[in-house]
């Protein structure tokens, strides 16, 4: 289920151009993260994939088929969608929310509800929550229900529009790990939109850094982008310029472990003696957690 954008542009009726001549191939069964500041057109690009927004020109292909020829309602039912603030239907119980799309596509109510319970297990929610209404759940629980709903028809493609943007950092961390775990077993084609570069580097196999008007500043793996920022914009966006990403070993450290500090002198993390050969910009989980800590330290 690869997705291909071919010279896609979108100008809204009020004259604003959200996206201009955007071309990109999103590989199958991997996570691609579109990252950029607000107004870079990332949500517009995401919504073009399920025809919530139709391009003004250019075309989008899913497995080689132009989606302009696929009726939007059917297309949307075949693609999972998870949004910020969960977008759960407040008048339906948790189980019914998860079962929404299967029931729309004619799966019997009873079977859809049973499947919904299994999905709650899958996203780490207690089945006891099935009969509650969304307003009775915490923000993190609502997002988990949102993810379960997105997976309910076992779609090949999952679109995620800043799904963890409105929850606190600790819950966000949990949800991100949960998504990595799920993606490890499910292998969906995930398109994830965020403005948080750390989230992008954590979740993305392929990261697309966007500038205004949907212009691609750089596409690559997190490793490639960190090691070789394509230009000033990217360097600035990923924090390399401010010295957040460039760490050095603190000489005052004693003992086995090595203390790392960033350019501003903030303690950024500790390199375990066992992993001392680890390359900082590598893609191993250790180095990622180092760069995460870097960012927090820099913000402190």
């Amino acid at each position: 289920m690869s997705i291909e954008f071919r010279h896609v542009s979108k100008t809204f009726p009020d004259g604003t151009t959200a996206v201009e001549d955007f071309s990109l191939t999103i590989p199958s069964r991997e996570t691609t993260v579109l990252v950029g500041s607000s107004g870079c057109g990332k949500t517009t690009l995401l919504r073009m994939i399920n025809r919530m927004v139709d391009p003004s020109s250019g075309s989008i292909l899913i497995d080689g088929k132009d989606i302009a020829e696929i009726p939007p309602v059917g297309l949307r039912r075949s693609i999972g969608y998870v949004m910020q603030n969960s977008g759960l239907l407040p008048h339906r119980t948790v189980a019914d929310n998860v079962a929404t799309v299967p029931m729309l596509t004619g799966v019997p109510k009873r079977k859809a509800r049973e499947d919904a319970l299994a999905l709650l297990d899958r996203v780490g929610l207690d089945r006891a929550l099935a009969g509650r209404y969304p307003s009775q759940l915490s923000g993190g629980q609502q997002q988990r229900v949102g993810v379960a709903r997105g997976l309910a028809v076992d779609p090949n493609i999952l679109l995620m529009d800043e799904p963890f943007g409105a929850v606190d950092p600790i819950v966000r961390d949990e949800l991100q790990q949960e998504l990595l775990r799920l993606q490890g077993t499910l292998g969906k084609t995930v398109v994830f939109v965020t403005h948080d570069i750390d989230e992008a580097f954590l979740l993305g196999n392929q990261v697309v850094i966007l500038q205004r008007g949907g212009r691609i500043a750089q596409v690559g793996t997190p490793k490639e982008i960190l090691a070789n920022p394509a230009n000033e914009f990217v360097a600035d966006f990923i924090g390399a310029k401010r010295g957040k990403r460039r760490l050095r070993i603190d000489e005052t450290g004693r003992g086995e472990d090595v203390l790392l500090v960033d350019a501003a002198g903030y303690a950024a993390g500790v390199l375990s003696a066992d992993d001392a050969r680890l390359v900082l910009t590598g893609s191993g989980p250790k180095s990622r957690s180092v760069s995460n800590k870097t960012d927090q330290a820099g913000d402190a």
Binding site: M52, Y81, T105
Partner: peptide, 26 residues
Amino acid sequence: DVRQSATALGYSAAQRFFRVELPLAG
């Protein structure tokens, strides 16, 4: 948000009106 979410899930316009907007306007 809820209207867009319903659209994204694949409610047709009529389904969205009767099953989402009308009850929520209740």
